[in-house]
Structures are given as C-alpha cells and as structure tokens.
Amino acid sequence: MSQSPPTVGLVIVSHSSDVARGTAEMARQMVGDEVTIVHCGGDPDGGLGTDVSKIVEAIDQAWSEAGVAILVDLGGAETNSEMAVEMQPAERQDRIRILNAPVVEGAVMAAAEAAGGSPLSAVQATAEELMGQP
C-alpha cells in the first residue's frame, strides 16, 4: 500500500471559538479529510480571547512532517500563537508559519493549496497573496 505524502496541517485561531469552528468547517468543505484542520478559540475561561495552551495542543494535533500553517484573527491571537510556536521543540519551529492573511479567506485558500500536496512555503504564499490585492 503506497502512502500519500503528508500534507501541511492547518490551525485556526480566533478570539471566538464559534468563528474558529465555523472557519474550520468552511475550509473542510473545500478539502474534506485531505488536510488536518484544527481550530481553537476563546480565552482560558471560555470568554472571547485566545489561549496559549489550547494553541499548543492544536499545533500538536495538526502536526505533519510537511509543517503547520496557523491562521489568526486579531492582535492577541497572533502574539499568543507566536508564544505557542516558541514552546514547540526546536526542530519543529522552522516548519510552523503564522500566515499574514485574513482568517476565513486565508484558511480556505491555505486548505485548498495544502490539499494539492504543496509545501508549506506555497501554502503560505497562496494565503498571503490575499493581502496583496488592491
């Protein structure tokens, strides 16, 4: 039985767990099970915010040898995601990127790119192209 090469995993981080879940759902509709998409949102008490330990867990769940792309919504989601990346083992850190792209559109584009077996750099470029549009 031949194994297909690993695809880039996605982590969706939003201040709202509803937004994170909905975004993951939209991206999954594009790509089915070809890409591992993990979402997390909400602060440690369940209010609006983000939680470093949840993000660390999500990265673990989404981990693939091809790497992990993280989509974030606002300020603290990015800062907390950076913190979570720094807590990963050193050999993983080079293969994790926080994408500079809008969370919903970026997740859909990244998922579509990842599903085709593209490397992390291509997944990042495709999602980030959205920011370059006039």
């Binding site: 440690p44 008490d45 209010g47 915010g49 939680d51 603290g76 800062t79 913190m83």
Partner: peptide
C-alpha cells in the same frame, strides 16, 4: 501570565 491571560497582554507582560 502567558498561559492564563488570554489576550495579548499575557505574552507581553509574560515576556
């Protein structure tokens, strides 16, 4: 602070 705050102030004051 990093683990418990939930906003950007956690990593900032934590760092």
């Amino acid at each position: 602070l990093v683990m418990k705050v939930g906003g950007a102030s956690g990593p900032l004051y934590g760092s």
